[in-house]
Amino acid sequence: MILIPDVLQFDFMRRALAVGLIVAAVAPTIGLFFVVRRYSAIADTLAHVSLAGVAAALVAGTAAIPTAFLVSVASVLGIEHLREKKTLPPDTIVSLFLFGGLALGVVLLGFSHGRNVNIVNYLFGNILTVSQTDIISVAVIGGIAFLLTLLLWRQLFAVAIDEDSAEAAGIHVKTLNRVLSILGAATIAISMNVVGVLLIGALMVIPVLAAMQFRLGFHGTWRLSLIFSFLSVIFGLIASFYLNLASGGTIVLSAIICFMVASLVAGQQRGK
């Protein structure tokens, strides 16, 4: 109670917390569907591809978050197109885009003339870099992604249970798969400044895994994953401020602590 007001005296921490709380709500909400559908590898790939978007933004002098989002969306559509053609194994398609995105990012950075230092902030997150423009981008993209997920919740859930049954019932599975991947791209784009693209996959996955330990229903797992996600972001940001640690790493380590505690508690409950 004494620490929090100190933290909030600084503008950059208020901005980081604002962005962090939006990310904390969006990441596990969309991450839940990625986890149950075993799409986690796509989240990682999109994170790497979004680096190419950041590099392109640095070269072109455009805003990083929207540019990274657009590049990720283009990649998502490419991945889904190749998956549907079924001429390549799905895991190799994902690898193709992962390495391709990373390579393109490295090459583009060569044209950025000394602005490479910024890329480290996007790789690992830096709360000092959150600007007022970032808050607006994160609020708009994150808000739309969150509301769209809630709107499509029932359909996404039916598809997650079984694609064939959902399609046989008349649900547009291919469209929903594309939308889910685009929502994943949006989550990654808005999380770059807070946890960094290399760690955002963790915030989409670990709070969900922690909640799954309790074997609740789908809604129960989602609600609990939100709690773990908020705890991880708030605790991680405060700890990184007072202990002068990297924000992204501290948030993800907080999430891992949540997972370990959840595993212990759930294990004891099951043992009773």
């Binding site: 039916a158 997650a160 249970i161 959902a166 074997r215 609740l216 229903g217 789908f218």
Partner: peptide, 16 residues
């Protein structure tokens, strides 16, 4: 390990 209760899965039959 899909995190859903029996009722949730049955209710999903009404989704379409």
């Amino acid at each position: 390990l899909f995190p859903a209760t029996v009722r949730e899965v049955i209710r999903s039959g009404r989704t379409a």
